[in-house]
Amino acid sequence: MYETNYHRASSVPDAAATFAKGKESKFLAGGQTLLPVMKQRLAAPSDVIDLSKIQEMIGIEVSGDTVTIKAATPHYDVAQSEAVQKAIPALANLASMIGDPAVRYRGTIGGSLANNDPAADYPAAVLALGATIKTNKRAIAAGDFFKGLFSTALEDGEIITAVAFPVPAKAGYAKMRHPASRFALTGVFVARTKAGDVSAAATGASQSGVMRVPAIEQALKANWSPGALDSVTISANGLLADIHGSAEYRANLVKVMGQRAVAAAG
């Protein structure tokens, strides 16, 4: 790792101000992505600003039909939260499948979304549930947030403060783990709103990051059941291919994980 300057921020404004002072500042939340990257010397921030101790950025609130997860809340706390388990069990379940226990203790939802790894789990839930990403500057709709591999609508120095999830009628997540990294080789999140709208998002599959899967959405809108996807074919075009999965295999997984997600949603 290159030498850097570590700052522990006490509040969101403090973090933003410290960020602005550095030459090449980076926010640090759980560090479960940034630190491995820095260790490999693939990132060289002059300053790292630690968000993980900012009290206003930690915690989970449920009000009415919305579950709000503050950005620095670790995956473990989301997975364990009784409120989340009750309102959107699929989201708690997803959080419990991220990485391993030590990663879940430190990694945060804000870090995961800001990083937008094409194989990360949270983006699938955020996109399928139509969540809103709240920052220190604005609110961004999920559909506008993800901009391809490792890229988002966030501006330099913008801080995700919370993510607001509308509570769906039904939702489910199924993930085929990458054998080595344990990220999603392909994960599919399906949701049906109380109004009857259906959305499905797949992570790990596409060359351009998390994506909606219209074929699955249409089939499920007509018939919310795993069997409804039997006749769906997913095109391998534009899907990732590597030693752990060909594009055809990932296309198959989008469908099979979609079916299992629906089954899990009930």
Partner: peptide
Amino acid sequence: AVKSCTML
């Protein structure tokens, strides 16, 4: 329980 290699 955390990974001390992934914490400053």
